[in-house]
Design a binder for these strands. Structure first.
Lengths: 177, 177
DNA sequence: TGTCTCATGTAAGGGGTTACATGATTCC
DNA sequence: GGAATCATGTAACCCCTTACATGAGACA
């Protein structure tokens, strides 16, 4: 569902091709899609049918032809409506908690190894996120307020991983000391 | 995939019916499934085929017959192997961040309303989680260590929502002041 | 009378994933 | 020569979700 609004949102920033959208979605961590083609091209077709986007074919000599998609007035107002809707609460889906739940089967060393590898994974993820944000699409907005909003989003993501890191460190101390 | 191990894990605590599993999965927040029947009964069939669980039909006079599932040795060792695997990092899928990303379309009042309703939703969720944990399956383990592990899981969930609450309050101050 | 709990299952559909297909250019 | 990037699309599959179906007893 919301991949539609994600696409409309990105296009509201500027007209882009499906390929461009794919790249943005792929390396924006708070967009929960693989960014692989099937969905994007399918969604663009549907959005066209609904009149939320229009496309223009650009022939290029060197590269293959592009379809540049532009959001319409109807698309923008649909996006605005969606923005105002009551937000859903996220569900905390952490596969690690599931794994941890039955880890009393493991001995002390195995448990310690599990905790260490999770800590390493999170640390790595945190570094990646920080790197991404420097060059990512969501660094500088069109208005001051948008820049501020995007900075809040980035803060949320980073601090979520930092919070998890704190938790796993504390948990390790409590369990393994 | 991991619903299989989740089922094995729960059954490792004690033998149960599909119906019991459904209820536990439904009201355990870190198990990311609807807990609705299709998957559970299907998974139990597959687990039977693989020899990870066995079932015994119990006829009852007043209620419908039950199938009580018990985890086998093979099932337990599969569960143990899975527990040792390198944990995946969770992805922070928060629909609210997606909604926020294009909220520069909204005016100040609409934005304030959006922030308030998210804060309320999270507050409500936090209360629910705290209530759940008091009576939930994952309150007291079989061993001291298991009790400690489950308490760490519960702490993770609660503090994740608390962290989100802190963030939204701070974000509101920064954006709307 | 109607809804809730116990108890097991089926049907249909949606959303997402990976992999495949094509074809040109650029870079090592 | 082989891999990566640009660019659009298709095919197959998996996981999960909602809704439906049945049928009995309990409770208001």
């Amino acid at each position: 569902m919301s991949i539609d609004f994600t696409i409309l949102g990105i296009l509201s920033y500027k007209p882009l091709t499906g390929y461009d959208l794919k790249k943005i979605i792929q390396d924006t961590s708070f967009m929960p899609w693989s960014g692989n083609n099937n969905q994007i091209y399918k969604a663009l077709l549907e959005l066209s049918k609904k009149g939320y986007v229009t496309s223009q074919v650009m022939h290029q000599e060197q590269s293959p032809s592009k379809k540049i998609y532009t959001v319409t007035g109807a698309g923008l107002s649909a996006l605005g409506e969606w923005s105002k809707a009551t937000p859903e609460v996220f569900e905390s889906k952490k596969p690690f908690l599931l794994q941890l739940a039955w880890s009393d089967l493991l001995n002390r060393d195995e448990l310690a190894k599990l905790f260490n590898s999770y800590e390493e994974e999170i640390t790595g993820q945190l570094l990646m996120e920080k790197a991404k944000q420097k060059e990512g699409f969501f660094s500088k907005g069109r208005t001051k307020r948008e820049t501020k909003i995007w900075s809040l989003i980035n803060t949320n993501i980073i601090s979520t991983y930092e919070h998890e890191l704190d938790w796993i460190k504390q948990a390790g101390k409590e369990l393994l000391s």
